[in-house]
Amino acid sequence: MATVARGGSASAVGAVVALQIAVTLPAFLVATLAPYLERDIGLSERGLGIAIGTFYAVSGATAVWLGRVADRQSWQRGLFIAAFGTLVPIAVLAGLLRNTAVLVLAMVALAVVQSLGVGTTNLAIVDSVTPHRQGVAFGVKQAAVPTATLLAGLSAPLIAEHAGWRWAFLFAATFPLIAVALTRWRHYGGAAASDLPATRGDEPVSPARARRLRTLAAAFAVATFTTSSLGAFFVLYAVDRGMSPPAAGLTVAVASVVNVTMRVWMGWVADHRTVEPFAQGGLLLLGGSVGYFVLLSGASWLLPVGAVLAYGLGWAWQGLIHLGAVRLVPEAPGYATGVMRTGLAIGSATGPVVAGLLIGLAGYRPLWLLLGVLAVCAAGAVLLTLRRPLETP
């Protein structure tokens, strides 16, 4: 693999964060702005579910392939392609959205761009940030996801209510432009051929490492099943248990702040301690599982505690698993990212669907019990996998 300069890490991480928000914010906006879309284009709950489900399905299906594509080019070039590519679905959502079919097409385009973009952001950290600081860099990058959720929530009252929902999508267009502005283009546009990762992505991946990566991706797919289900139904459950909608929203906001803080802090720990990043992720998942059993009690005063544990702690492993993936398969970080993201996409797509069916059949308490058990099982699978020697067939 070619030697890549690690200068300009601050601007590179800034570009990475901006791109990460750019490829996730539009999808969050669709969910947040659903009441406005229902009024203006006739979007139904079924149509919203199809659009969001399609987004996750396409994202998972293209993650490995486009991760390989990311490996074969410089991260600067990949960032430019992903950033400008994101502007296409944003333009469709802001200017051409008239019915559910167009929404689904926009979600397909956004999912494809996201698959390239996330692989590129991980590649940027590997190439631009020194190894002893990559944990914090991955933590900051993954903290961009709950930040995008927060921005989507604020866009409804601050933009959609006053200027219209189309302007909220136009607001999302600022982030790919920021990513481009922060990218040090001269490292690609005027770079010598020796600066480009000409052989990365062509090197064979160790079968033992590939097997371990797939096993860990499956475990964290189950983990994502639990967190996506919690995110979809916690507010409804809290209101059902007597909490006011503003208080439920504030609880989610506090849990999100805890989540962002934990992602960055755990990245710092990964840089300064010898604990394997995947092991850290498994321990966080195990600790977060307690939150589901707290929610199971049904006591209204315990709901914030359960939410902070299950969401703030139990979903704080995102940066760690991306760091662990690129360290496990350093010869193909884009591929490693793609495998991991395929698992996460499967969990994200199936969790709310299954949870909704279970709530309809048996109520919330069986759901929290199931999610708590699944979180414990996923954490156990991660920790047991890491105990086995890597060479074991």
Score class of each variant (00 low, 15 high):
S348N: 12
G319S: 08
M340L: 15
V222F: 13
A248I: 00
A156Q: 10
V326F: 06
V260S: 05
A143F: 04
R214E: 08
L296G: 07
G314V: 11
A109C: 14
L371V: 05
V269D: 01
T226D: 08
A172V: 04
S300E: 13
L367G: 00
A148Y: 04
W268Y: 14
L286D: 08
R72L: 10
R186V: 12
L196M: 12
L309D: 05
V205T: 02
I178Y: 03
I346L: 14
L358Y: 05
G314P: 10
V17P: 08
A238R: 00
W75A: 15
V23Y: 15
G242A: 02
M243V: 04
A124N: 07
F138Y: 14
G281F: 03
I321G: 00
G319Y: 00
T226R: 01
T147S: 12
A307K: 02
A355R: 01
L151D: 03
V264Y: 01
G47E: 11
A349N: 05
F80R: 10
M262R: 03
I50D: 14
L371R: 07
G49S: 12
A148R: 04
L213R: 00
N122C: 12
A192R: 14
R214D: 02
L371A: 06
H187K: 14
R388E: 11
E203V: 15
G85K: 04
Y36P: 00
A61N: 05
G7Y: 12
A124W: 04
L66V: 05
D240L: 01
T130I: 14
A217E: 03
G117R: 02
A381K: 08
A31K: 04
A144F: 09
L151I: 07
L386Q: 07
T199V: 13
T149K: 06
R273L: 09
V353Q: 10
A299G: 07
Y292H: 06
V145C: 06
G53Q: 09
V260L: 12
V290A: 15
I125V: 14
G287R: 03
H272A: 09
G312T: 06
A31E: 05
G42M: 07
L370S: 14
A307R: 02
L383P: 05
V16W: 03
L93I: 05
V17F: 12
L93H: 07
L93M: 14
L384Y: 08
L285Y: 09
A172Q: 03
V376N: 04
G78Y: 04
L367M: 11
L19I: 08
L123N: 14
L116I: 11
P26L: 06
Y188L: 10
A137K: 08
F171N: 05
G338N: 05
T274G: 12
G67P: 01
L302F: 09
F220R: 06
S348V: 10
V30H: 03
L123R: 14
V339H: 03
T251C: 11
